[in-house]
């Protein structure tokens, strides 16, 4: 399950989605909003997504992870909207029989999500300016 969520991520429900009595391992990754990026002080983040395609491409990433690493279950949820420092922006959870596959698949899913899924991030800085991340040459707004 790959979901774009405009609401805060609820970890209990995601944990249940991963439950599998065959699983001896569960690896999770939490991406959180941090205060520094490229030497600038961040005040908040804004995420935007093209949700229908983001969820399709995300589902493909989870299928690839299952095929490559032989995991049992995988879940990824990515936030949209305005997030404050420390807020949870993305969560990945993977269960597998043994820990190696769970770690590897978790890493694969977050890396591919950052590369391929149509999600955009705008950083709001303490000095009042903002930038769409990854779009070099953006004129000041």
């Amino acid at each position: 399950m790959f979901k774009i969520s405009a609401e805060p991520i609820h970890l209990e429900a995601l944990g249940r989605a991963l439950h599998d009595v065959a699983a001896g391992a569960c690896a999770t990754f939490e991406g959180r909003v941090r205060i520094k990026n490229d030497g600038r002080t961040v005040q908040s983040l804004e995420y935007e997504a093209f949700a229908p395609l983001a969820e399709k491409e995300g589902a493909r990433i989870l299928e690839e992870a299952a095929a490559r690493f032989g995991i049992l279950k995988a879940v990824c949820v990515h936030r949209t909207g305005r997030l404050a420092l420390g807020d949870l922006a993305v969560w990945v959870g993977v269960t597998s029989e043994h820990r190696g596959a769970a770690f590897d698949a978790c890493r694969y899913i977050i890396d591919q999500t950052k590369l391929r899924v149509p999600i955009w991030k705008r950083e709001h800085y303490a000095d009042g300016t903002t930038v769409w991340v990854g779009v070099a040459g953006t004129p000041p707004v």
Binding site: G31, Y47, A49, F50, L53, A54, H78, A89, V90, I110, T113, K114, L115, R116, V117, P118, I119, W120, K121, W132, V133, G134, V135
Partner: peptide, 10 residues
Amino acid sequence: LVFLPPVAGG
């Protein structure tokens, strides 16, 4: 149609 700017999730 959607034109997708460089993505920056995560």
